[in-house]
Structures are given as structure tokens and as C-alpha cells.
């Protein structure tokens, strides 16, 4: 099953749903386009550390909704390249230190708009330089990756590294076997995964660990039955998915859990219709209120990041919609 089923797939209306439970494509596209005009608002620069991520989320949502040209191509490329540093990596915004998270977003954005070759025009070096930056963050002893020169290690960064390198076709720059062994070491007795070996199982970390195994074609190493059971237990009676046992559901975790289930081919273990309706209900509430604060309360997201997390949420449910329809 493909996570991204092609432009426009997410936009198809299903007749099974009442009108109020349909994806409001036009409103979402307009919202993402208008983000750029809101830059005088306080929260816009408070979320500067998420800027490049935000462009990726918005862009992906637009592509999923069948509006791939809604953001200007040339300006997108220009902004991405302005975020690059002399070390080859990318920061969240121009002038920010390089970090794995933003380097992946940069590569993803350029790949999405067929502009990877633009990297070769960058004054800070082309695809090879980017790949070398990513590879330099691997801990050659344990196989895992740091996010930046500070050395904070997390399976999130390992996933980001493998994905960026896979897009750049440069996975040979790192020790893939050691990276895979590290992911395996993060498996807990419940079949699920944490940030480092022994850390609490968390569906965000499951997504990154399963993603890493999927990219490296080593899903055979996961305990698929136990993992699938743990993931499917995340669905609550209202249809939404939570991130850890006994937590509340939200759209964000619905994304991490569902895409993990999709990677291990176990989506049929949960109730897809109920999940779809849960996601669409969140959308309806957002539109009725026309207020970011309501959006915040729905998903319990700290207000400081709500502005761009809004984008992420739209990306998520539009992607979810594609998966569920496939």
C-alpha cells in the first residue's frame, strides 16, 4: 500500500459521508496560501524554528489535495537554499544552525517539486555535501544518529538520516547495518519502540523505527504481530488513535499510528471508517470556529506551535484520507 496515492486522491469525495464530513479542500488550500501573508503576526516568528518544516507540511498537504502549484516554485526553491549552511546542512530558517530535522525537510521539499538538481547551484555545495553532512552525524560505534553537533541522539534522527540519504541515493555513506541493529535494540517487550534502548514505547518513535526498517527493507526484523497488536490497541472507541496506552486520541497520533500500521500491512486491524470520521470531525470543528485556539484545544497542542502544527494536521488528515481510501 502506498502512503501517498498520488495528487488528488485525498480530494476525492466519498458518497458514504455526509456533507459536513467531507474534506474541505478549498478552505485548506486557501489557508496554506495565506500563511505567508500572516508573517506580521507574533506567532509567525515565534515558530521560526519550524519554518522549513512548515513549508514541507504545507507543500505536501497541497500536493495531496491536488493543488501542487499553489505555492510558487521559484520562491520555494530560493527559500530552501537560503536555509543552507556552509557545512552542507540546513537550518530551520536562514541563519539557524544546521539540524537533521530541517535538512530532511529541505531534501523532501526539493524532491517533491522536482528541484533536487537546484542543490548543485547552491553556494554551499550540492547533493553530495548535503549527504556528507547527514552521514557525519552517525555515531559509528552504536549506529544511531545525532540531530546536530550537540549530539542529542534519538531514533527520530536515525529515520530522518536514512530517509534523506535514500532520497539523495547516498545510503552507502553510512553504516546501514549498524543503524538497523540500533533500531532493533530500541524494541521493547511490547513489540513497540522508544527513543533509545529501554525508553517508553511511543507511537512517534514507532513511526520512525518502522520507517527506518521499511527504508532499509528490513521489516522482517520487527515483531510484526506484537507491534501490530500494540498499534491497533491505540484506537479508542471514538475512532481516534492515541500515542501511548491510556492517553487521549488526537489527529497527530492518528497519523503516526496509521502510517506505521500501513507500513506493516495491518491497517485492517482497526476500524477505518470510524477513524476517517474522527479525523473529519476534527476538521469540521476547526472550520466552524475559524479560530486557531479551538484547533489548539482539540489537539492539545501548545499554543506556541499551533500555528504551523495546524498545517501538519491538515497534512496528516489529508494523507490519512489517502491511505484510508486506498
Amino acid at each position: 500500500m502506498s502512503l501517498v496515492s498520488g495528487p488528488g486522491r485525498g480530494g476525492q469525495k466519498t458518497n458514504a459521508l455526509p456533507d459536513e464530513l467531507a474534506l474541505a479542500i478549498d478552505q485548506h488550500v486557501k489557508y496554506i496560501q495565506q500563511l505567508d501573508t500572516r508573517k506580521d503576526e507574533l506567532q509567525y516568528w515565534m515558530t521560526e524554528h519550524l519554518r522549513l518544516n512548515g513549508v514541507y507540511w504545507g507543500l505536501t498537504a497541497l500536493h495531496l489535495m491536488g493543488h501542487p502549484n499553489a505555492l510558487p516554485h521559484d520562491q520555494t526553491v530560493q527559500f530552501v537554499l537560503e536555509c543552507q549552511n556552509p557545512d552542507g546542512g540546513f537550518g530551520a530558517a536562514p541563519g539557524h544552525d544546521s539540524h537533521m530535522l530541517y535538512t530532511l525537510s529541505a531534501v523532501q521539499i526539493l524532491a517533491t517539486i522536482n528541484a533536487l538538481e537546484e542543490l548543485e547551484k547552491s553556494k554551499h555545495g550540492g547533493g553530495d555535501k548535503v549527504a556528507a553532512f547527514v552521514a557525519s552525524l552517525q555515531d559509528r560505534e552504536t549506529g544511531t544518529f545525532a540531530g546536530d553537533e550537540w549530539g542529542e541522539q534519538d531514533t527520530r534522527f536515525l529515520f530522518c538520516a536514512l530517509l534523506a540519504l535514500a532520497i539523495l541515493d547516498k545510503t552507502d555513506l553510512v553504516d546501514v547495518n549498524k543503524a538497523v541493529a540500533y533500531v532493533k535494540a530500541c524494541e521493547n517487550f511490547d513489540g513497540s519502540y522508544g527513543r533509545i534502548p529501554g525508553a517508553e514505547s511511543h507511537s512517534g518513535q514507532v513511526y520512525t523505527c518502522v520507517g527506518a526498517l521499511s527504508i532499509t527493507k528490513r521489516l522482517d526484523l520487527a515483531n510484526l504481530d506484537r507491534l501490530g497488536a500494540w498499534l491497533s490497541e491505540r484506537q479508542l472507541p471514538n475512532g481516534g488513535l492515541n500515542g501511548r496506552p491510556e492517553k487521549l486520541e488526537d489527529v497527530c497520533y492518528s497519523w503516526w499510528v496509521l502510517s506505521s500500521l500501513a507500513m506493516i500491512d495491518k491497517v485492517h486491524w482497526i476500524d477505518k471508517t470510524k477513524l476517517t470520521n474522527f479525523i473529519l470531525r476534527c476538521q469540521v470543528t476547526m472550520h466552524e470556529s475559524r479560530s486557531r485556539t479551538t484547533l489548539i484545544s482539540i489537539d492539545r497542542i501548545p499554543s506556541k506551535v499551533a500555528f504551523l502544527t495546524g498545517l501538519a494536521i491538515w497534512l496528516m488528515y489529508s494523507t490519512l484520507f489517502s491511505v484510508l481510501q486506498a
Binding site: D36, K39, W45, R51, T76, F79, E82, P94
Partner: peptide, 18 residues
């Protein structure tokens, strides 16, 4: 000062003191 980014996507407008 911040390098001029007039016309770029996602340009950032800060408060004067920041």
C-alpha cells in the same frame, strides 16, 4: 542585521527588539 529576504517565501517579520 538579518540578511534581506525581500520577496522570498516565508520571510520572517520580527519585533524590533527581538
Amino acid at each position: 542585521p538579518q540578511a534581506d529576504q525581500t520577496g522570498t517565501l516565508a520571510a520572517i517579520a520580527y519585533s524590533a527588539r527581538y
